[in-house]
Design a protein around this nucleic acid. Structure first.
Lengths: 118, 118
DNA sequence: ATAACACGCAACCCACAGGTTGCACTTGAC
DNA sequence: GTCAAGTGCAACCTGTGGGTTGCGTGTTAT
């Protein structure tokens, strides 16, 4: 186990957002998704940063539940995990809908008020 | 006008993600969405930070297209803008689906290979 | 057995995001 | 006309996120 000990979606969304905020991390995810499998070392020499940097990024991604690594012999294979991403996508979508709803309501009220005073 | 001069969704998504990564900024958005309307000064004394801090956050949110401000007399009214958020939500959703697809393919191949060698 | 490869840990560096304070400039109220 | 409210701009401070290097530890190959 690595992340998520219950506690509702809010916590997770937070981690996912901060994780995705970094471009390097997004590139790592892209490569991982494309290859389906990769070690920190492998990923490192596909990017202009050291292995340690990659390791740190993977740690962040893992804490967000976006990635998970399993030891295979002397190396650690990392894989992408869609669940957390999907959760966050839904959260965001709901939020957008909520904003829309509120804006619509406000607009309606404004028009009503305008009609009132004429 | 404030943000977005064409250039495809990628750019925008980047800004939105970094904007949403900060908890203070998310709170600001919540308050804005709830009130439908607010000035930097108003927002500031609802939070434990200075007006200037709020102004900077609003600038970031505006650059991401999540918010827009209009001058009304001596104050500037800020409003929430769902469009950018919605775009990002879709992007994320698509990405999640993409990951799922790839993982499914890989699993299928693995099973095929296993069946092969037995 | 030993060399090479991959990982884990720790110390360290530095740019910059988030925050503050102070002051000048408009705009509205009285 | 004058005072207060609200904004805009700039300088400044500080923690930390992203990065590096160095070294010790396991694991596989020869």
């Amino acid at each position: 186990m690595s992340a998520e000990g219950g506690r509702g979606p809010a916590e997770g969304v937070d981690n996912v957002l901060t994780a995705l905020a970094d471009p390097t991390r997004r590139r790592l995810l892209d490569v991982l998704a494309a290859q389906g499998d990769a070690t920190a070392t492998t990923l490192a020499d596909g990017l202009p940063i050291s292995r340690q940097a990659v390791v740190k990024h993977l740690a962040v991604l893992d804490a967000a539940g976006l990635v998970s690594g399993a030891r295979v012999g002397r190396e650690v294979r990392y894989v992408v995990r869609p669940a957390a991403l999907d959760t966050t996508a839904r959260w965001m979508s709901t939020l957008a809908a909520d904003w829309d709803r509120r804006l619509a309501t406000i607009k309606r009220l404004a028009e009503a008020a305008e009609r009132e005073e004429s």
